[in-house]
Design a protein around this nucleic acid. Structure first.
Lengths: 224, 224
DNA sequence: TTGTCATTTTGTGTATACACGAGACTTGAC
DNA sequence: GTCAAGTCTCGTGTATACACAAAATGACAA
């Protein structure tokens, strides 16, 4: 076995998280341990470990003797999550503007260029992927490992909702221009402006939720 | 069984976390599952679940087929944690200044008064406890459940180190005066000042680490 | 003595078995 | 037809058993 070896539980964690993020497992859905064990051809033990980890990461909720369900995030909580995410990104941008290393600058600019290419092709799926790389590069550039972990955690929790956002008309182009503003501020070494622009970039998404909420609310109701 | 019932695994999680926070289980220490199972007179199963949760919370590290160890936090990482904590507290204070409800104000002031009493008695242990209540009240007052959870998580991770801090000469009195500044800014409805003061309050602790690091470094070396 | 390799031992990772509470269902009264 | 009490079923929570990788041990050679 190679060095990249992971336990069954860890693999399951990633797989189930993927199912949740892509909506295959819908919010509110019950996650039966035996069912999942059969589905993945393993015993309940690693399934339970995976569910524990997903609960810690905020993807599922486990109630005593009632099993795990995919978390259903209401409008208020979603706003709260974006509010925190905005601040985390602002902090990353602020620190990045102060501390940018050559390697981090190169990574950031490369991801930024890839985003541009995807935006010009008007390819939302590609942009979704490259956008993630850009944000990860930003978190890394802050040169604070704890902050990077927290930012990635929160980013992951918002994944199911971010994906929907990019379908909105012209959102991809607007997103890239916002990225560009952040990058410029970081390259200029202007922490305050970098922070403000990063915060605004995330906040904008949160504010597009009047319409998203409508569809989401009925989606959540339907799932019950 | 009453409504406050918790599983064995959950109880173990709290107990082991307590042992880590109080230093009974030292940083770097190996956590043998069978040993812990015997110690608590349970099987390995709930022990493993507790360790999983502690790993997710950042108290232990689990490596594949090498078991769990209490995380050893180096100076750099500790600085990073305080940097993030400072920003989370600043955000809480800023939002609290904007959104303070009557109930939250009452809770904050009560905790603040309890801190004062403990500080005047020059009782570091009491102050440690009341200080925690104060900070929890602050997190709550921000009226953002996600932020509250994140702040409490990070606060918990820093517990082992905060406790040492308060032993420092005159630190308790200085801490209370800093609290007072934060409270006044919040009551005045001044978000920027509340944020700045909360950030400074946490940052001060982080900066007291020239001396703490010295003792900590030798502590960590001895534990190996 | 020191280093290397085979062997054993130990502890984790997963599977299976058992215990017990929550919720579904049945039954019966009104 | 509705609702309440009792029973049963099913799924989770915990215990135990088994598989296998990694560390520890020891034998042997340099």
């Amino acid at each position: 076995m190679g060095p990249g070896m992971v336990s069954t539980a860890h693999r399951l964690r990633d797989e189930i998280e993927g199912l949740i993020v892509t909506g295959v497992l819908a919010p509110g859905e019950k996650l039966d341990e035996v069912q999942l064990a059969n589905r993945f051809a393993v015993s309940r033990t690693p399934i339970r470990e995976a569910l524990q980890q997903l609960a810690a990461a905020g993807f599922v909720e486990i109630r005593l003797r009632r099993g795990a369900t995919v978390v259903r995030i209401g409008p208020e909580r979603l706003v709260e999550m974006f509010e925190v995410m905005a601040e985390l990104e602002a902090m990353c941008a602020r620190l990045a503007a102060r501390r940018l290393s050559d390697a981090d600058r190169a990574a950031l600019l490369e991801a930024h260029a890839s985003c541009r290419a995807a935006a010009e092709r008007e390819d939302p799926d590609a942009y979704y992927y490259e956008n993630e790389r850009f944000h990860y590069a930003l978190y890394r550039a802050a040169r604070n490992g704890v902050l990077e972990e927290e930012a990635r955690r929160m980013h992951a929790r918002l994944k199911p909702y971010r994906r929907l956002q990019l379908r909105v008309r012209n959102r991809v182009g607007a997103s890239w221009r916002e990225h560009d503003g952040i990058v410029q501020a970081i390259l200029d070494g202007d922490p305050a402006q970098a922070a403000d622009r990063a915060r605004a970039h995330v906040t904008v998404q949160g504010e597009r939720f009047a319409d998203l909420m409508a569809s989401l609310a009925q989606y959540n109701l339907a799932a019950e």
